[in-house]
Amino acid sequence: MTITSSSMSDSSTTHRSTTPSMTQGPLMSFAPIGRFLKELWRDKAGFAGFAFLVLLGLAALFAPLLAPHDPAAQSVLARLKPPIWMEGSVSGHLLGTDMLGRDILSRLLFGARSSLLVSVSVVALAGSFGVMAGLVAGYKGGLTDALIMRVVDVQVAFPGLLLTLLLVAVIGPSTATIIIVLAFSNWMIYTRVVRGIVMSLRQTPFVEAAEVVGCKSARIILKHILPNLISPLLTLAILEFTNIILAEAALSFLGLGVQPPATSWGLDVAGGKNYMMIAWWPITFPGLCIAMTVLSINLFANWLRVTTEPAEREKRYARGRAAKMRRAKKT
């Protein structure tokens, strides 16, 4: 019990402060981040996932500096040139070119931008709305709860793809549309999860204690309930992130998402599919990016889930220690 809460708060603070410091290398000696990285390093898969995500984030951020070409620049002469290590490649196009002669590497870098932009915005938008609705529903109960949850039920029951198609058709496809549409069809899961946790937290003595000393509802929700939601929400949001990346790719693939000349991995997969038989690279690289990102997120989320679960975290630590001792014995 004692280690529980400290480790929970540790992990959440360390996590929050990670991303900025990673971009500022020298600050890595900062204690909580050091501890975070040390613990992450023990789970090699989680570390790999995290490293890939950090690289991806950096690549997306500095895409204009890193990209060798303009991602939209076409060249009829350099159509469907293979990656650099293959015969018939053109120098300067590391991963080759697509059917319009655009540099695939540059497209991937810029594609990461739109994929990440859409996913982050959707998770933030859907998350904050969904969490708010869940908090109110769970804490107030009664009629408010019934109303909110019926709205959730109705929306969950309505086919998501149909709704998306409908909305896109009405508003017209664009990056902003796709963010709004995906947020609109993905907030319910947060509401459901949050409501469940809030309902059980309401029963905990420390929430009753807060009521007894005279706290108002707003304070109880924000000060006593919300902080206890951070760890489960963090894991949920990260897993949702993968869903959004896939959804964005699917919509762009269908031509309803990101519109040319902007790029997106999904759009590139769609473009490459017609030439799949004669040139594998225009479809493989963006597809690989999607798969790698989703995999990395899952590996990292898996680590994070254990880390925010104090008992699991303690067990993982003990397993690591035991394995180390066995190795030490052998040598």
Binding site: F206, E208, A210, G214, H224
Partner: peptide, 19 residues
Amino acid sequence: TRNIQLIFQDPYTSLNPRM
């Protein structure tokens, strides 16, 4: 509540662990 207060049974769950 300023005049009537409550002491709880379980000191482990009645204090918010994050405060």
